[in-house]
Design a protein around this nucleic acid. Structure first.
Lengths: 257, 257
DNA sequence: ACAAAAGTGTTGTCGATACACCCATGG
DNA sequence: CCATGGGTGTATCGACAACACTTTTGT
């Protein structure tokens, strides 16, 4: 375990234990009420939202650092995450802005301070079960909330660009990564799975053909229970046969959508 | 243009103008005599081969830095390149080894020297037309040569891992990136294109079905010339209709292989 | 003339699409 | 009881795999 740090400690001493010039940002996807959502932080003293992110300890693997950030924001330990791109434009960070934040927090820093150097950031996307996440803001933010993916228009720095890239990656990897498994609860209904696919692909699919195809793959198992409570006919619940699912993904699910 | 540097200047002064802790490495693919090849550097004072790589100037975009490295090793200006992964294990660089190299070159450095800090590296892959490349070693190497992809067993540091990842990425992106266009000369034959696909996918394809499918896509155009010189029947030459090719790739070429 | 490589054609099968119909449930 | 959503069945079409045959060229 890494020690808890205060914001003052990080600003003043972070240069000693964090890697210089490298950060990471996480696009955390969740699925709830038939909508794809992303976990965002409302920043202190600002009217902007940002992706959860962090720095990397000098002796820490980058993936471990991402896992740590994920754990801190969601409370979850075992999370599916995947690095997808480095964002490294020289002017991507707004140095004036950083200085302002620190001023407001009453922290004075020199021009060669580690936090106002150029930073590149490694983008990760993570897939979580919405229901079990307990969102927790970090030191720089006042709240941590889910946002519907299509209602996000502007974010801190280049974070909107990072988000768009994550979504695009998700789309491309839909046939190669266990996306359904990680975004849905253990038990789910066919219409839910379909909605997930439709949201990610941003297109409508035929209900019956979708079901036939999914069943044809052989990695979903229908249970004897149904999802009660909703109006209309109660749909059956399914779960994934993880063995078969992963095996099928290795080859990539055949055919387009 | 960036200035030419001596190795001494880089070792002693590099910390001033390069980003700390971040490097890049390029997997440069070429296709020749029906074989997929990679451009490697034979390192000075060592029995190992390495991927071409470099550092990033403090005010330089990472993609530009990669382009610069590519230009220096191949002589080419317009190169297709794509970032594919960050390699960031804490122990990936061998500090002792770096110290040794510098010693052999008669350079003394302290323990806090910028070159023996932990480095993460951004992996790029590049696709070039084999015929027009003029391989050029860098300051740390004695030669720069093409190596057949399957005959490479061990490389410097984690470069073999980087190479394997690049190849895997190439495979996954075969239906989404203009891989044929960039690896083949302007004019090429169907059997050549097929061999390229077979090499990347590592499986045999049916000659006739391959041709029908390629023609069906509509982005290859058969010319009236044939490839003379070889034995047996002369195959027709083709070229890409870049407009249609890119359009088709946007959707992704349908169907698996 | 023969071997080897390239061009062209045909057929069967399987999977995706586009439908229509039946069942269950809440208002 | 009816609107709505969910489950199941079927016909059609197209794409791909598997195959055979013809054409060209060098030796």
């Amino acid at each position: 375990m890494r020690p808890e740090r205060t914001i003052q400690d990080i600003v003043q001493e972070g240069g000693k234990y964090f890697m210089p010039s490298v950060s990471l940002d996480c696009v955390i996807f969740g699925f709830h009420e038939n909508e794809l959502k992303v976990l965002l932080l409302k920043m202190k003293n600002m009217d902007q939202w940002a992706l959860p992110g962090g720095f990397i300890y000098k002796d820490e693997d980058i993936e471990d650092a991402a896992t740590r950030v994920l754990r801190e924001r969601t409370g979850l330990h075992d999370i599916f995450l995947q690095q997808f791109k480095v964002f490294g434009l020289p002017n991507r960070s707004d140095k004036k802005h950083h200085l302002n934040i620190m001023k407001k927090d009453g922290i004075k820093v020199g021009k060669d301070h580690w936090l106002i150097q150029r930073f590149i950031t490694v983008g990760f996307y993570a897939l979580v079960d919405f229901a079990v996440v307990i969102p927790e803001p970090d030191m720089n933010s006042v709240s941590c909330e889910w946002h519907e993916i299509h209602s996000i228009s502007e974010l801190f720095m280049d974070h909107k660009d990072i988000l768009d890239n994550a979504l695009e990656t998700l789309r491309l990897q839909l046939n190669h990564q266990p996306i359904g498994y990680n975004l849905l609860p253990q038990k789910f209904t066919m219409p839910e799975l379909q909605k997930l696919y439709e949201t990610i692909l941003d297109k409508k699919l035929d209900r019956r053909n979708f079901q036939r195809r999914m069943n044809g793959f052989g990695f979903v198992k229908r249970l004897k229970e149904t999802r009660k409570g909703g109006a209309h006919k109660a749909p059956f619940l399914y779960n994934f046969d993880l063995r078969k699912y992963k095996k099928a993904l290795q080859e990539g699910l055949q055919g387009g959508w």
